[in-house]
Design a binder for these strands. Structure first.
Lengths: 201, 201
DNA sequence: CAGATTGTTGTACGATCGTTCAACAAGCTT
DNA sequence: AAGCTTGTTGAACGATCGTACAACAATCTG
C-alpha cells in the first residue's frame, strides 16, 4: 500500500531527521568542540559509518542541522506572530517576546549558532549561508515594522536596530541565564520599539 | 644591570605574551576549529612542546588569550572615554562609538570571543570567567549612565539594554561586514541612548 | 524459494589532536 | 674553564578525529 518503493530498515528522510535531531542534542550537551561523528552516531543509536552514507561529511550534517534549526525558529516565530491577531503592534510585540521564551531562548539553539559562527571565518560557503539566513530574518522584521507605520527611509536602520537589540539580549540570556530574565528582556525590547515608533509620529 | 636573575633565551613574560599574540592571530585566521598547539607553535616560531611548558595546556592558553583580549578592549574603551573630556554624555557616546571602530570591531576579536563561547557550554570555569568579564563590562557602562543622570531604579535595565544593543550591532558588524557600516551602528546606538535619557527626564 | 538490491555494520586507515620526556644548548655561578 | 641551572627542542605516545570499504542482513523481485 505504501507508495515508497524502498522502505527498508528506515525511511531515508526519517534517518536524516533523526541524525539532525541527534546532532542538535549533542551540540547542546557537549558544545561545538565535543561534537564528533562517533558521539552523534552513538546518540542516534546507529553506526558511525552511516553518517557518511547520508551526508557528504560531518560539515554537511552540521550545515543541515543549522538550516533545520533556523527553519524551526522561523516557524515558531511565525506562529507566535499569527497567534497575536491582526493588530500590527501586537504582532511586532509577539515577535520580540517570543525571542526570549522557549523554545527560542535555549542553550541548545545557542550552541548550534556558535558552532556555525565558528565556521564562518574559515569557510566562505558557510559565511554565505549565514548572510542569507540573517537577511531573511531582517526581511521578516522589516515587514512587521512597516505595518506599524515606520517611515520608509527609517525602515532599514530600524530593522537593524531591533535585530541587534533582540540578538544581544538573546545571546546574553542564553550565555548567562542568571543575569536577567526573559520577561525583563521583553520589557527592554518593547520599550525600544516604543521609542522607535513615537519618534516617527 | 637587569634585575631578572634568569634572562635566558627569552624572558618568560615575553614568551607568554608572544604565545598569546600568536594564539590571537591563529584564532583570527583559522577560526576556533583550526586552532591547535602545532599551528600556534609554528606561528610563534617555537617548538610545540614549549606551549605546555608555559601554560597548563591548550585550554589554559586560550583562556589567557581571552583574558588578554578582554583587557586590551577595556583599555581601548577607557582611553576613548578619557579622550572625550569631562562631559558625561560625550563620554558615554565615546564609549559606544569606539565599539564600532578598529581595533574593537575586528574579526580577530570576534573569533576569540566565539572560541570562548563554544567552551562555555561544557566548562563551568570558563562560564564563570565569562560571567565575571561581562559583569565588569556592565559595571563600567553603569557608571557612565549614572553620570548622565539615569535614575537609580532604571540603571540596571538601562545598562543591560545598551550592552545588548552594542553587542548585537558589534556581532553583526563583524560577521557580515557588508550589511551596515560602523558609522550607522554608532547612529543607532546613540539614538537609543537619546531615547533612554529623554524618557527619564 | 533463489537472486538481486540496498540499508547497515564494524573495522581499518591515515591524519591530527594534546601531552610527555629524554636529550641538547645556552647562560649564570664559582 | 668547569659545572650547574634552565629554556628549548623534537621525537614519540596514546587517543581521537573523519572517512572508506568489505562483509553482513534485511527486504523486494521473480
Amino acid at each position: 500500500m505504501t507508495a515508497n518503493p524502498f522502505p527498508r530498515r528506515a525511511e531515508p528522510d526519517v534517518r536524516r531527521q533523526g541524525l539532525i535531531a541527534a546532532c542538535t542534542r549533542v551540540l547542546a550537551r557537549e558544545g561545538a568542540a565535543g561534537t564528533s561523528v562517533r558521539v552523534i552516531a552513538r546518540e542516534a543509536g546507529i553506526s558511525p559509518g552511516l553518517i557518511t552514507h547520508y551526508f557528504a561529511g560531518i560539515d554537511a550534517l552540521i550545515s543541515a542541522t543549522y538550516d533545520h534549526v533556523d527553519q524551526t525558529v522561523a516557524a515558531a516565530m511565525a506562529q507566535a506572530v499569527d497567534a497575536a491577531g491582526s493588530d500590527p503592534r501586537a504582532r511586532l510585540d509577539a515577535f520580540v517576546t517570543a525571542s526570549f521564551a522557549p523554545p527560542i531562548a535555549d542553550r541548545a539553539l545557542l550552541a548550534t549558532w556558535i558552532a556555525f559562527w565558528s565556521l564562518v571565518t574559515a569557510r566562505p560557503d558557510i559565511a554565505r549561508q549565514h548572510d542569507d539566513q540573517y537577511a531573511a530574518y531582517r526581511a521578516r522584521l522589516t515587514e512587521l515594522l512597516a505595518a506599524c507605520g515606520v517611515r520608509c527611509d527609517h525602515l532599514r536602520l530600524a530593522a537593524i536596530s531591533v535585530t541587534a537589540l533582540v540578538d544581544g539580549l538573546w545571546l546574553e540570556l542564553c550565555l548567562s541565564p542568571g543575569c536577567f530574565t526573559g520577561t525583563e528582556a521583553g520589557v527592554i525590547a518593547r520599550a525600544h520599539i516604543d521609542a522607535l515608533l513615537t519618534r516617527r509620529a
